[in-house]
Amino acid sequence: MSGEMTVKGLSGELGIKDSTLRRWAREYEETGDGAFPGNGSPKINEDHGIVRLRKKVEELGRENEVLRNLRAFLSQDHA
């Protein structure tokens, strides 16, 4: 960030693509110290969380449907 080394030189030294280093720098400039919580970028972590929550919502929807069907079945007169 201080400009002491070129992006190309630093990315070569770190063994990563210069585009990755530029993206990391941009994310750090945008969000500061909160740029890399856990082990990845906020965008990746957020996307993973959204996918996980959508799967849970689908699972709960299926469970509710089973329970509705069971309640309807049990409320019928089976004499």
Rank of each mutant, 00 (worst) to 15 (best):
G9Y: 04
G9S: 12
L10M: 11
S11K: 00
E13P: 00
E13K: 06
G15F: 08
G15D: 11
D18I: 03
D18C: 03
D18T: 08
D18S: 03
S19Y: 12
T20S: 08
T20I: 10
R22I: 11
R22F: 13
R22E: 10
W24C: 01
W24H: 00
A25R: 00
A25L: 03
R26S: 02
R26W: 13
R26N: 05
E27S: 04
E27Q: 10
E29L: 04
G32P: 02
G34P: 00
A35Q: 00
F36S: 01
F36A: 01
F36P: 00
P37C: 08
P37D: 07
P37M: 11
G38H: 08
N39W: 11
N39T: 15
G40E: 13
G40F: 02
N45W: 02
E46I: 14
D47P: 02
G49F: 12
G49S: 14
I50C: 09
V51R: 11
V51P: 03
L53Q: 13
L53N: 12
V57F: 10
V57C: 05
E58I: 14
E59V: 14
E59R: 15
L60C: 11
G61V: 12
R62V: 13
R62S: 06
R62P: 01
E65L: 15
E65V: 10
